[in-house]
Amino acid sequence: MTDLVLEATGLTKNYASTRALAGVDLNVRRGESLAIMGASGSGKTTLLHVLAGIVAPDAGAVRFTPASGVPIDVTGGTESVRSRLRRERFGFVFQQGLLIPELTAIENIALAVMINGTGRRDATEHAAGWMASLGLAGMEERRIGELSGGQAQRVAIARAQVTGAELIFADEPTGALDSQTSADVMNALLWSTTGQGRTLVVVTHDADVAARCSRTVSVRDGRIVNAEVSA
Rank of each mutant, 00 (worst) to 15 (best):
E32Y: 03
L6H: 02
S80E: 13
T9N: 06
G10Q: 11
A67R: 14
G53R: 00
A211V: 01
S179N: 02
L11D: 02
F92M: 13
Q161Y: 04
T75F: 00
A183M: 07
Y15A: 13
P101A: 06
M131G: 11
D25M: 09
R120L: 10
E140G: 05
F90T: 12
S148I: 09
V70A: 11
E140R: 06
S80F: 05
L26T: 08
G23L: 05
T104Q: 09
R86N: 06
S148W: 02
R220F: 14
R223G: 08
G129K: 03
S192K: 06
N116T: 15
F94L: 14
R30D: 05
E79M: 13
E146F: 04
A59D: 12
D206S: 11
T18C: 02
V81S: 02
F90V: 05
E32D: 07
G135K: 05
A22N: 15
E172N: 08
L6R: 00
W130T: 06
L189M: 15
Q180E: 13
I36F: 10
A137M: 04
A61Q: 00
A231Y: 04
A158V: 04
E146V: 01
F90D: 01
L34R: 10
L167M: 13
L111V: 03
M1L: 07
L6Q: 00
T45P: 05
R198Q: 11
S42E: 03
V24H: 07
A39M: 09
N14P: 00
G138D: 09
S179W: 00
S17N: 11
G149Q: 07
A59T: 10
E107Y: 04
A61D: 00
V24L: 07
I54V: 15
M131W: 03
D221Q: 12
S68L: 07
A59V: 02
A8C: 14
S40K: 06
E141D: 14
E146I: 02
D73F: 00
T199L: 12
Q96W: 05
F169Y: 13
I168D: 02
R82F: 00
A227F: 05
R86H: 08
V155G: 10
G23R: 04
P71F: 04
L47Y: 03
G97M: 11
M37Y: 03
E172T: 14
V70P: 00
L98M: 05
R84V: 03
A20Q: 02
D206C: 06
L48G: 11
A158R: 03
R89S: 14
L11M: 09
S218H: 08
L47A: 07
A160G: 09
E88C: 02
L21M: 10
V203P: 11
A22K: 12
T2I: 02
A165Q: 07
W130Y: 15
A170D: 07
V225G: 10
S230A: 15
R142E: 05
A160F: 09
R212Q: 14
A20N: 10
S68I: 02
A132Q: 13
L200E: 13
D122F: 01
R86W: 08
T65E: 05
A231F: 05
E228I: 07
V201T: 13
R223M: 12
I109S: 06
L47R: 04
S192I: 08
Q96D: 14
L26P: 11
I36V: 15
T194G: 13
V219L: 08
M139V: 01
G38T: 11
L103I: 02
L48Q: 08
S80K: 05
L98C: 06
V70T: 14
G43P: 05
D171E: 08
A231E: 08
